[in-house]
Amino acid sequence: MSDTQWPRWEVFKQDTPNKPHQAVGSVHAADPLHALLTARNVFVRRPQAVSLWVAPASAIFSVTQEELAEGPKPSPESTGVAGAYLLFRKTSHKRSMTFVDYVGQLEAPSPQAALEQALRQFTDAEALAWWVIPASSVVRSEESPETVESWFAPAKEKTYKQQSYYGVVGTHTSKLRGRGGADES
């Protein structure tokens, strides 16, 4: 078997129960459970999270606004089946740590059809990019309180990773200007 870095899985993190799952990046992992565990290790080093989803990058049908304007885009063959699809959408060019947010699930004969349906259904904001993912390929963290406590709560106590832990150290630059610099702080 040839050596690889394992397949890529996109990771979706939900920060609080009232917020949507958001695409935060990807992990390389070998199988679904491993991908989910890895996502927790990589993306929950800091608060905060209450739920994680992962999906193989190869199962994602992605379309940008620019691509939409150019006409239909063929979706990946491996995923072109009827069933439930999860829809994710990007709506802002603002600086952010996340890309597309979860907007909802719908039944469709193909990813392309799911996208067309989404364009009619989710019209509350301009869409700059879409991801369409078969629900069957999404792996989700357990929702039990025990799992949430075990996977997501401890990060809140690792305060040494927060800059606020170090308080104000030294004298701020603004106070030093023009003082020649050699004073004791």
């Binding site: 397949p7 890529r8 070998a30 199988d31 193989p56 190869s58 199962a59 491996s78 995923t79 390929s137």
Partner: peptide, 11 residues
């Protein structure tokens, strides 16, 4: 993974 849970590998 190949034994247990093959995933689509289009990449």
């Amino acid at each position: 993974a190949a034994k247990k849970s093959p995933i689509p590998m289009a990449v």
